[in-house]
């Protein structure tokens, strides 16, 4: 099964089993729920700011391997970033997962996020991959409400 081997990269499976920053954050500045009613993915993303910088970010909840590992990788990458940097990274990520599957990937530019390139082959999984990111952006904007992909 060549296609899914590409989708479920080892890094994704590993983050799915052992998600990083997978914990509630009682002293979070922002807390946003992420919900994908289609498949029942349900996460909460927590953010603690220090001025314009993300001091700490975590998440908890349940979802598929793609949504969970994407949230996990996201928390690793965003710690210490400014709001602007976080938004710029999301744009890159979003462009990659929604691109034509044949399009070349600039691995040096996208970095660790390139493990999610397989999502391009499965349009229904784009929502899974971007779910936590949407909540994160809402949190950074201070829209502390739930975010749904539907």
């Amino acid at each position: 099964m060549p296609a899914n081997r590409a989708l479920y990269e080892q890094v994704i499976l590993e983050h799915n089993k052992k998600p990083r920053n997978f914990r509630p954050m009682p002293d979070a500045d922002h807390k946003v729920e992420a919900y994908n009613p289609l498949c029942g993915d349900h996460f909460t993303v927590y953010v603690k700011m220090n001025g314009d910088r993300i001091e700490d970010v975590s998440f908890d909840g349940a979802g598929c391997a793609i949504s969970k590992s994407s949230a996990s990788v996201m928390t690793m990458l965003l710690k210490g970033k400014t709001k602007k940097e976080a938004e710029a990274l999301f744009v890159k990520f979003h462009n990659m997962v929604t691109a034509n599957p044949e399009a070349p990937i600039d691995e040096a530019d996208i970095g660790k996020l390139c493990v999610f390139a397989g999502v391009r082959e499965f349009p229904v999984r784009i929502k899974c991959a971007t779910l936590a990111w949407h909540s994160m952006l809402a949190a950074l904007d201070g829209r502390d409400d739930s975010v749904s992909t539907e």
Binding site: N4, C39, G63
Partner: peptide, 12 residues
């Protein structure tokens, strides 16, 4: 595995 991942592998 989450049901969504089950469905994906099944599809393959």
């Amino acid at each position: 595995a989450h049901p969504h991942d089950i469905g994906q592998i099944f599809n393959d």
